[in-house]
Design a protein around this nucleic acid. Structure first.
Lengths: 236, 236
DNA sequence: GAGTGGTCTAGACCACTCA
DNA sequence: GAGTGGTCTAGACCACTCG
């Protein structure tokens, strides 16, 4: 139940994702929705605004709200979605191999990325992502040790995000992604099925908590032929 | 003046961009802002929500709204910003060379991307972007001819977006970007300073109008060492 | 003219933080 | 307990679309 606007948002986001509402079809008007959910029009508008921001619908003044053509299975979808969420949605066979899970002092580069001073310890997780039988993505995660509950290999094999969200001590708030293209390293070649590719798509992810402290730095290295990033943007 | 919430948004976005409000500093409370702008709290909240979505500020319940560390000069900033906007903000010396500007029938690939049927004509613009003396980006723009006012080489050398926004017949609403990495083509090699690079970062941009018709398809091909894409995302 | 979404108001109650 | 942001309400007026 929770928030009314969130309920409305989920209702329609789910219907659109599952194709039960087809593209170009018209949503009920804001007044109708307000009556149906027993709430005020402004609350309905909050939900529709969210749907619009996330590329589910499009609103036209004087006409109504319409379902957009959503390309499902875009990888990775823009935003803060975890590998597991994306992989399971895509329906492809996938697997995560935890190469290493250790705790200790960060090397200087990571320390600077995480704004770490002095002798603070971190969790360092290295994972290889296998999709369709090929080792394609190398994920190197770094967390402030003091900020999260203890990790295990089993948790890393599933989804660290799901674990953190459930354990609820930690609230993820926002993130910044930087995408660049860089030469493959010796490590990439050793751990992945690189074929002849010499370059990698590198996504650096900086994740912040609710109180705006930086708590995670992740480097996600993708084989270029399998890399695809989708971004939906709206003018105001 | 226009909308109140837009005025408030611009006021603070400008102050933060120009560094007149330093990171971590606290904004006035929503009630104070409502008084100061002679408006209601909900309207102030709309402006703050926009600032928050765009990565300018961060709101903490019970405490207030705080300025985030904005990395200026990130190229390209997430969203619908044109090359000219980004280039001028970065302060680097830049130049646009209009390789060709023609109108006619699209080839089959572009026609399918633009959802063109039958004998509709398009504008096709090919531009080379030079930054710091190097030809780095190849932009191939395609517009439905019937949807926009006529283009000239001079307009293409400046900013097509500025021109379209001023001419006001056309209202850009939302866009979808897809980033992939692909092999360099013979055309890339001929028109750009590619050095030894064999791959390109390709950004396909699908731009829609207010009535949700697709009106532009652009392929933006970047030399990999100069490519950088930044995305700011928020959990709700 | 009826219906739609866009903006705005003046309140209300809540959960949270901090002194 | 005073102040903060988060949610919600029940209205209002406007600009726009369409028959």
């Amino acid at each position: 139940m929770e928030n009314i606007y969130w309920t409305i948002y989920r209702d329609y986001a789910d219907q659109i994702e599952q194709g039960r509402l087809s593209p170009d079809s018209k949503l009920p008007s804001e007044n109708q929705l307000a009556k149906r959910y027993g709430t005020s029009r402004e609350t309905v508008r909050k939900a529709l605004h969210l749907l619009s921001q996330n590329g589910y619908i499009h609103k036209i003044k004087g006409k109504g709200s319409f379902v957009l053509h959503v390309n499902k299975f875009d990888f990775p979808v823009s935003g803060l979605v975890s590998f597991k969420e994306v992989a399971t949605k895509s329906g492809k066979e996938w697997n995560t191999d935890v190469v290493s899970l250790e705790t200790g002092k960060p090397d200087p580069y990571v320390a600077s990325q995480l704004n770490i001073q002095g002798s603070e310890a971190i969790w360092k997780v290295v994972r290889v992502r296998e999709v369709g039988g090929e080792k394609i993505i190398l994920d190197k995660d770094h967390f402030h040790k003091g900020l999260i509950p203890p990790l295990t290999k089993d948790i890393c094999r599933e989804s660290i995000y799901e674990y953190l969200e459930r354990s609820s001590e930690v609230k993820i708030s926002f993130a910044k992604k930087v995408i660049t293209i860089e030469g493959a390293t010796e490590e990439d070649e050793r751990l992945l099925d690189l074929d002849r590719y010499a370059m990698m798509a590198v996504v650096r992810n900086y994740v912040y908590l609710d109180d705006s402290t930086l708590f995670q730095y992740t480097e996600s290295r993708h084989r270029p032929d399998k890399f695809r990033f989708v971004d939906f943007a709206r003018r105001y």
